[in-house]
Design a protein around this nucleic acid. Sequence first.
DNA 1: CTATGTTTACCTATCGATAGATAGGTAAAC
DNA 2: GTTTACCTATCTATCGATAGGTAAACATAG
Lengths: 188, 188
Amino acid sequence: MKSDTREAIMAVARKTVQAHGYNGLSFRELAKEVGIKSASIHYHFPTKGDLGAALARRYWEEAKAAFDGFWAETPEPSLCLRKYTDVFRQALENGNRMCLCGFMAAEFDDLPDAVKVEVQAFADINVAWLAKVLSSMDTSGDSAMLRERALAIYAAIGGAQLTARSRADISVYDRIVESYRVAGLIPG
Amino acid sequence: MKSDTREAIMAVARKTVQAHGYNGLSFRELAKEVGIKSASIHYHFPTKGDLGAALARRYWEEAKAAFDGFWAETPEPSLCLRKYTDVFRQALENGNRMCLCGFMAAEFDDLPDAVKVEVQAFADINVAWLAKVLSSMDTSGDSAMLRERALAIYAAIGGAQLTARSRADISVYDRIVESYRVAGLIPG
DNA sequence: CTATGTTTACCTATCGATAGATAGGTAAAC
DNA sequence: GTTTACCTATCTATCGATAGGTAAACATAG
């Protein structure tokens, strides 16, 4: 089995970053919640940047697995998109938290390079997956335009999450995303 | 004249928060850039929360004045909306910075209450102004729906800014906003 | 099976840097 | 004489990181 402690560190750290950001993540506080000493975190993750990069990488790997699961199991593309927007809703449900990489996008200037790479990878897999789903709904064959639309949907969902968070009101997220559908930004 | 130093503190602090967030704002670094000692900042702003609240308040006051100026000077509502999206573009032009209140929305959990109030006020004035402009383009008279659309546009623009920032590429912002218009989220 | 060496996974203790905040002093302006 | 607008000096708390120790787990040789 992979180290339980390492997994526990990552689990607690992910929730912390989703609520307080990368800059709001402290080794001492993290260690206290895990039940070890802060020096022990350095054993598993030599620097904070190593931990941040591991967190962001794990985050997009899990997201990609979930999205691919939707695509494999869900025959209806519009339902696929509904499951997609629900994933971002769940972060808000979980203590008014944000997407880990969405928060880190705001803090981008202060991230170590290794973390930046993984944050960008998260956006990439979102856009690629959305473009794939959109292409299954659209016969125009203009894949460049679908990619643009996919990018717009990804950005809009991140904005909906950010806005709802500042209201601490998940219904704000629902209303914004519904408006995106009404306006035609998100098809279905 | 209002204190030059106080204004200088606010000007430097605003740029810092737009790049590094409220948590990334340090009295020592701020004082160094202004050319005074950190203790002197406490003379003008007793606590960091006081400074943060003053920054956010000033920010939405200036935004409101700018938006009202657009509305007064620009006869064409769709041109008004273009000036609106340009305002958020300018933050990115200015060293890949974000909207001050957009960044603080991410850090919402860690903000003093007095700051939270002002961050929410910024969103309120954006949505109210957008709803007013939208109502001038729409004769349906469904003001509740226009407010929902206004909220969606505000959220989407914030997301576009966040996404473009994480790419350090202003053209990403332009492409996303253009997609919003193509999709019909932003009329005009 | 036992003895020995290595690796794993922590720990205590501490480092220098930095955080916001405060006390008290000073010199100029009013 | 009081207020304004700074200053120096310092406080406690916290930051990420490091050095070095320990005890258990494991591997290997006799």
